[in-house]
Write a protein that binds this DNA or RNA. Structure first.
Lengths: 152, 152
DNA sequence: TTTCCTTCGGTACACCGATGAGCATGGTAA
DNA sequence: TTACCATGCTCATCGGTGTACCGAAGGAAA
C-alpha cells in the first residue's frame, strides 16, 4: 500500500469504468504496472468487487428512512430471530447492531410516504421482539456516499 | 423500464465488471441489444456511474460510527454553516438532514477508538452550532449495502 | 566491490470483448 | 395496406486487456 495504490483506490471508487491506460496516466505509471497493481488489489481483497451506482430518484425511490429499533429482550434467541427476519425484506437496505439508546439501526427506501406505510405494516410490524421504533425521515442529503477515505 | 432493464440493474449493482456478453446471456438477450440497453440506462441517468467496492477492514477502518446531531438553532445561517463544515472532513462519509429527535445523522469511519477520539476532537468538536451529539458505535453489520431494490 | 536475487516498472503484442452499422421483425397508427 | 418506430439479431472492426519478456534498482552475502 503505497501512494500509487492509494491513488488507484481513490480513482476506482470514483469511477471504475476508466480504462487502465487512462488510470495509469492519471497516477503516473505505465499501463502494465498499473494493471498489475489493480489485479493485486483485487486478489488481496482490498477491492471487493465493482458495482453500478443506481440513481434512486430515477427508480422512483424518493424517500429514505432511518429506523432505530429497540428489542424487548437482548437474549441470543431474540436477536437471532430479529436478524433473520431483517434478511427477508429487500426494502431494508442496511441493518446495524449498535451501542447507544437503540439496539439496531435500519436504513430503508420507499417510493413515498404511502409506500413507506405499506413497508411499515408489511415488514417492520412483523419483525419479532421489537419493543420500540423511532423513525427519522431523510429531508435532504448533505453529503452522500463517495467511498472510503484512502490515506496517502 | 421493463424486466430486462430491471434485471440489468440488479446484475450491474451486484457486479459491474461482468462482460456484456455474459450479462446478455444471463438476462436472455443478444450482446448488442443488452449493450444498447446498458448505454441507454447510463445516458438516461438511471445508472449514475461505476465504483469499486473497497473493503474497509483491509484499509484498517474497523470502526463505524453513527452520530445524531442536534443544533442550537434551526436558522438558515446555522444550518448552512454546519453543512458547509461537514463537507470539509473526509472522515464524515455521509450526512443527512432528518426529521425526528435529531437534526442530522452522520456516518463516520475510523481505524479504532483512539482514531475516533481524534476525529471527535479535530472534526466533530469543531462543527458549528451543535448543541448535542448522540454517538452510536456499530457492533456488527447485520445486513450491509447491496444496492437498491429494483422491481420487476 | 562484486555477484546474485528479488522486486517492480516498461515495451510489445496477441486476442478477446466492446462498439456500432446494417438488417429483420413485430406492433401501431394513418 | 403501408409507413414508421421500437427493438432484437448478426457480423465486422477496433481498442483495451492481459501477458510474456526485458531491464533497472535495491538489498544481501561472500
Amino acid at each position: 500500500m503505497d501512494r500509487f495504490d492509494a491513488h488507484i483506490l481513490r480513482e476506482l471508487q470514483r469511477d471504475s469504468h476508466i480504462a487502465v491506460a487512462d488510470l495509469a496516466e492519471r497516477i503516473g505509471l505505465s499501463t502494465s504496472a498499473c494493471h498489475r497493481r489493480v489485479k493485486l488489489l483485487e486478489s488481496s481483497g482490498m477491492i471487493d468487487g465493482y458495482s453500478a451506482r443506481v440513481n434512486p430518484k430515477a427508480l422512483g425511490l424518493d424517500l429514505e428512512v432511518f429506523v432505530d429499533i429497540t428489542l424487548t429482550s437482548q437474549s441470543q434467541e431474540a436477536m437471532d430471530a430479529f436478524e433473520k427476519a431483517v434478511q427477508l425484506y429487500d426494502e431494508i437496505l442496511e441493518c446495524v447492531l449498535t451501542t447507544g439508546t437503540a439496539d439496531y439501526i435500519l436504513r430503508i427506501v420507499a417510493r413515498d410516504v404511502a409506500h413507506y406505510d405499506m413497508i411499515h405494516r408489511r415488514c417492520l410490524a412483523r419483525l419479532p421482539g421489537v419493543s420500540g421504533m423511532q423513525t427519522s425521515f431523510a429531508l435532504r442529503s448533505i453529503k452522500s456516499w463517495r467511498g472510503y477515505p484512502v490515506p496517502g
